[in-house]
Design a protein around this nucleic acid. Structure first.
Lengths: 232, 232
DNA sequence: CGGCTGCTTGAATAGAGTCAATAAACGTGG
DNA sequence: CCACGTTTATTGACTCTATTCAAGCAGCCG
């Protein structure tokens, strides 16, 4: 989408010098723990979540390969979110000071980071609107579509069938529902012919209807990167 | 908090060369309209919101003096959010190309913009958790506290009494509730002795209890800006 | 085999929405 | 300054969506 100069590529590569493996369920960073590191997610799927006073959990975001994690470490001394592996993962940790140097030296990379910030902001506000103003069924449908799309972005083989990789409780924590109600909504989507399920996999059987049920908006359409500053 | 060099200050001042006045209710930017401008909010209170297919509205964020608006114009050709004045406002419009030049020339300002992005991200995720996992009463209480705090940040006179400046319907659109239910929750907070109300003003009579009811977290505590690159 | 964890379903309950009617506040033009 | 129309606030009665509680089942792993 955007061509990077060799110098820029080399600078980015420095962020990926170290690697760390995580098993499903492993916690990369826990809310309120001191944190001065950031991470690139190299492979696998992770999530970030927060815990509320009453012990309930809200999943904020799912992370896929290529995402930059714990960017809040730039600004906060303590982690604001818990980051957990949903599948076996590889992450590349780096110091925030290294990142600071990177954006000071490479304004175009700084600009690109802002681009991703804005895309993420759009994703968060879509979820906000979904939680505030859409039905349980719509939220579950939207979650299914988002998971499929992000998986598909990394693996062109994937079309209508994919591995969910989440428990129904996790879907509930992402959508603000109970696991029980998530189950009922999945059943309803199935009964209405929009999806079928077979142990952990979901198949979209009427994607049009599912997208309609989900109030889906594609945030990667309509991107415009023409404003980026010139390479240095 | 952070000292800017004269050159940096001058560069920032260029963003505020033009001014535009808005009346309450005026729309600065409408969702899906083409947009290549950004804005600094100089005075007044605004909100950004999205409209859903069924005509319901979700308010995403309230904006106060000093906020940068429509940052998504950096990345999207069409506005992703509607931005509306909640009081008489003054905004300073500028081209996104001017902003691109600014961050290319002044890495420290680029870094500061990222800081604000992250603070905003934290605010959005707090709201996400509130919508997903807290009761109607908690959401209304949290909204009251947020409005008071942001007003107080600009006007040290304000302590426990402040002007709401929002209709109950607007509070509902921010919290994902109906206006009717917002009314009931305000009444309940009043009956329980946490607030009192007099035409459009709210007074906190038991702030401790209100903060507890709201699950409140102060996101401006724990900031750490030591990582910022050196001035150039 | 036995003990998890996750999935499924039903019945009862609670929290928030809808509908409707009234009252109060506000704004505007005469 | 007042009258009138509009928006906003308030409250009650009823409905419905999602939660809670509970029980049974399936699959997986040591």
């Amino acid at each position: 989408m955007v061509m990077l100069t060799p110098a820029e590529q080399a600078a980015l590569a420095r962020l990926e010098e170290r690697e760390r493996q995580l098993r499903r369920g492993a916690v990369l960073l826990r809310e309120r723990d001191p944190a001065a590191e950031m991470f690139i997610l190299k492979s696998g799927i992770m999530m970030s979540s927060v815990m509320l006073a009453d012990g309930s959990r809200q999943i904020l975001r799912f992370h896929f390969a290529g995402d930059m994690l714990a960017v809040a470490s730039l600004v906060y001394n303590e982690a604001t979110e818990t980051i957990t592996a949903l599948s076996p993962c590889t992450v590349c940790p780096f110091e925030r000071s290294l990142f600071a140097a990177l954006i000071a030296d490479h304004p175009r990379i700084a600009a690109l980071v802002m681009v991703f910030n804005q895309i993420e902001r759009a994703a968060l506000t879509d979820r906000l609107a979904a939680l505030g103003r859409t039905s349980a069924k719509a939220r579950v449908a939207a979650t299914l579509i988002e998971l499929r799309n992000r998986r598909r972005a990394l693996d062109r083989e994937i079309t209508t069938r994919f591995t969910l990789g989440l428990t129904q409780e996790e879907i509930g924590d992402a959508t603000g529902l109970t696991a029980v109600h998530v189950n009922r909504m999945l059943r309803q989507l199935e009964d209405e012919g929009m999806i079928t399920r077979d142990n952990g996999n979901v198949t979209f059987t009427d994607e049009r209807a599912l997208a309609r049920a989900a109030n889906f908006v594609d945030r990667y359409a309509g991107l415009d990167l023409g404003w980026l500053p010139a390479a240095r």
